[in-house]
Design a protein around this nucleic acid. Structure first.
Lengths: 160, 160
DNA sequence: AATCAAATCTGCATATTTTGCAGAAAATTA
DNA sequence: TAATTTTCTGCAAAATATGCAGATTTGATT
């Protein structure tokens, strides 16, 4: 017996996708407006949307513009872990750091990718120094993001 | 005479930062709740928040979990542009593609970084082929994201 | 195919939130 | 200091969210 079915792609129907699309456009769209656009009752829109959020299918987040808010150094750091067995542990440590906005393990030449927002170049240098001394971090390569052209959500229509 | 003052870091006060913090935690937090937490009137919270959004300082977006929603291939593509003068033009073209969730110019070895969400590996291959034939794209290097450990917003407290 | 159980949807009444606006307070400028 | 602009507050009206009971649909089992 399964008490709570975890959502996976196959359990998302057209209505779910339509709600996700609405939220991608405007994370503060009201239940009422979503319901009207999709021709369902407010209750339905609310139930679905709340479940999508609870199940972690979508997160409604406020994303600050790093420049406008004062993060002068937005960067990408490639992290090489040796021995490779320490990867999870290193990831755990790095994910705690407040500057980190994105952290993932990768298939490529390096093992972990860390995106960070720092106040200034010197703060960034400090940050890179800090992660360089974590046990298991063998090497790092830092790349600055100069100009962000797009920061959006992929078109869910691609999944149809 | 300046009719509309563009916001820059120095014009954001403590209340603005406090509102941004609330929205980073929950993009759907109501004006009322924000007002109560910060001990200001609802009208003030509303005016500030709307202005922060209008000025592009923060965007409230629904971010879907690529795995759960059916994007089986989440990847990072390093793009080398030759001649370098075509960079803006290439960026413009790539930013139109629906798979692209992030696009920025960088300081490093490569010129542009493109993050994409594709349905499958074959869709990703197709995508990489498509951008490889764009005029000015000299070379690409694709790295898959295997596991995302963190996808959050940086701590605004770092700016204090 | 019929039945039952579980899940989902709808619509309504109530509670809460948002919106528009006018006047008070604060900040800015001359 | 006075004038001007900007920001804040509080109130009433409109819009929205919430809780819930009953209807509908879906899915599993026989």
């Amino acid at each position: 017996m399964i008490s709570h079915m975890e959502k996976n792609p196959s359990t998302l129907d057209d209505l779910d996708f339509a709600i996700l699309s609405c939220l991608q456009k405007d994370g503060r769209m009201s239940f009422t407006e979503i319901a009207e656009r999709l021709n369902v009752s407010v209750g339905t829109a609310r139930t679905r949307l709340n479940r999508l959020i609870d199940d972690g299918i979508i997160s409604i987040i406020g994303r600050v513009d790093p420049d406008k808010v004062g993060f002068g150094a937005y960067a990408h750091i490639a992290v090489y872990v040796r021995p490779a067995t320490l990867k999870e542990q290193v990831a755990e440590t790095i994910s705690q750091l407040p500057e980190v906005s994105f952290l993932a393990s990768t298939s490529g030449e390096y093992d972990l990718e860390v995106d960070v927002m720092c106040q200034s170049n010197s703060h960034l240098v400090q940050f890179v120094n800090d992660i360089s001394v974590i046990e298991g971090v063998y090497q790092t390569k830092t790349t600055l993001y100069f100009k962000v052209y797009k920061y959006a959500q992929p078109d869910l229509g691609l999944l149809k």
